[in-house]
Structure formats: structure tokens, C-alpha cells
Computed example of a mutant assay.
Amino acid sequence: MESSIRTMTDVRALLKRFGTIIYTGDELGDLDLMEEELAELHRWGIIETAEYIAACMVIRRRRMELDN
């Protein structure tokens, strides 16, 4: 199954589906918290592996953009 998660907006929408809204004002910190929340959702079997991997890739891509 191909995931439709391609942007940070998609990642935020995925988390929001499960009642999670992350905004601390520190974007790098937000990315860390999002990764942790996604890992928990995946570990609990709430989101599929494809969604988890796609969301993590989007987050890592954003982290690389911020590092440049």
C-alpha cells in the first residue's frame, strides 16, 4: 500500500487524526516530538508501517532543509 504522506502538512494531519497537535515554537523540537509520537503510534499498531516510514522520511527531509 502506497502512502499519501508527502509533506509536513500531511504528517501534521496524520497526527491530528489521533488527537496530537505539536507546536512548541521550536521547529527542530517539534520534529523530534513528531518522530516520537509516530514511533508510539506504530509500536501500538495504530498506524501502518508504510505511513510510519513515509512520515519519518518527510520529517527527516525537513530536518535536512533546516540544517542547510
Rank of each mutant, 00 (worst) to 15 (best):
W44C: 05
D10R: 03
T20I: 15
A54I: 13
L28Y: 10
L38N: 02
T7Q: 06
D10Y: 04
E65A: 10
I59G: 02
R43V: 07
A54C: 11
V58S: 04
R61V: 11
I22K: 07
I22M: 08
G45V: 05
T49C: 04
E27F: 05
M8P: 00
I46A: 09
R60D: 12
I21S: 14
I5D: 01
E37T: 14
E48L: 13
I59P: 00
L66H: 07
G45D: 14
R6H: 11
T7A: 01
A55Y: 02
T20S: 03
E48M: 11
E36S: 13
D32A: 06
I59D: 02
D30A: 07
I47V: 14
A13T: 14
S3L: 04
T7E: 03
G29F: 08
L31H: 07
R12P: 02
R61Q: 12
E51D: 15
T9I: 09
D26K: 09
A55N: 05
R62Y: 05
V58N: 03
I53N: 01
A13W: 07
E51F: 01
L14M: 15
D26L: 13
G29A: 05
L66V: 11
I5W: 08
E65P: 01
Y23Q: 11
E36D: 14
G25Y: 05
I53C: 00
L33G: 02
R62A: 10
A50P: 00
L38K: 03
D67R: 11
R63C: 07
